[in-house]
């Protein structure tokens, strides 16, 4: 009996994300390199903005999301570095996995890494910058929606840059303008949560949701031709 396309897509996605999580478990690159980098960024922000003058506390939402974007670039580069080394990408092309499934799997892997990074960064800004949030639910929803959008766009642009010699320098210039709306929406929603005005924050979640859905859709359709050429 032929399998439903969506079923095989999700099964392939689960295989890819399982592989990526196993890789991380064994190599601990995110844990031992990207996570410390993210915390370092928080400390560097404190050097740039005098911690005594409350600027840090006021700027917490923006600084949080900036730290997420910088760490995201590393997470995406790592996610595709494991695919391009040793000709793995050829194996992936020959593997008969559904390309849309590979896309979703890579996106889910990047998303899970990002979520962990965000939780640590969130604890970081709470402890280091002394900012206390009020709207807990808004914070969680914003994080989940923004992560979905960043992961989808990251998975897409990651494969676009993957095969190139200049991928490390090209990825930021391709990705950062694209995810600028996520930075805006994430920052505004967080600002609302910190200012105890969650009502204003929710409409930014709408923008984040639309962004995520759009990029998941583009990725599902565009990943196959991009994978062929990477």
């Amino acid at each position: 009996m032929p399998e439903l396309a969506a079923d095989s897509m999700l099964r392939d996605a689960a295989m890819v994300v399982g592989k990526d999580l196993r890789l991380e478990w064994r190599s601990r690159v995110t844990f031992s390199q990207i996570l410390p980098f993210a915390l370092l960024v928080l400390i560097l922000f404190a050097f740039a903005l005098d911690p005594d003058r409350r600027i840090l506390e006021e700027a917490t939402p923006g600084l949080f999301w900036l730290a997420v974007l910088f760490s995201m670039l590393l997470a995406i580069q790592r996610a595709y570095a494991v695919e391009t080394a040793d000709g793995v990408i050829d194996a992936l092309r020959l593997s008969d996995l559904d390309p849309a499934g590979i896309f979703l799997g890579k996106a889910a892997g990047i998303g899970l890494h990002l979520l962990v990074l965000e939780i640590v960064l969130f604890l970081g800004v709470t402890v280091l910058y002394g900012a206390t949030p009020h709207g807990g639910l808004l914070i969680v929803v914003t994080m989940v929606l923004a992560t979905a959008g960043l992961a989808a766009a990251g998975s897409l642009y990651g494969v676009l840059a993957a095969g190139l010699r200049v991928r490390d320098t090209l990825l930021p210039i391709l990705m950062l303008p694209v995810v600028a709306p996520v930075l805006i929406a994430g920052t505004e929603a967080f600002s609302a949560a910190y200012a105890d005005a969650s009502g204003e924050g929710w409409k930014w979640c709408g923008l984040l949701a639309a962004f995520s859905v759009l990029y998941l859709a583009i990725g599902i359709f565009a990943f196959e031709p991009l994978l062929e050429e990477s």
């Binding site: 897409l156 676009l160 391709l174 303008p177 694209v178 600028a180 709306p181 805006i184 929406a185 505004e188 923008l207 962004f211 759009l214 583009i218 565009a222 031709p225 991009l226 062929e228 050429e229």
Partner: peptide, 25 residues
Amino acid sequence: AKQSAILGIIAFINVPIVHYSVDWW
């Protein structure tokens, strides 16, 4: 040609998203 074509389409889809989010901001 193929990769740029895909990026050329995505970039244009991005223009209104960026425009409206900045406008809103």
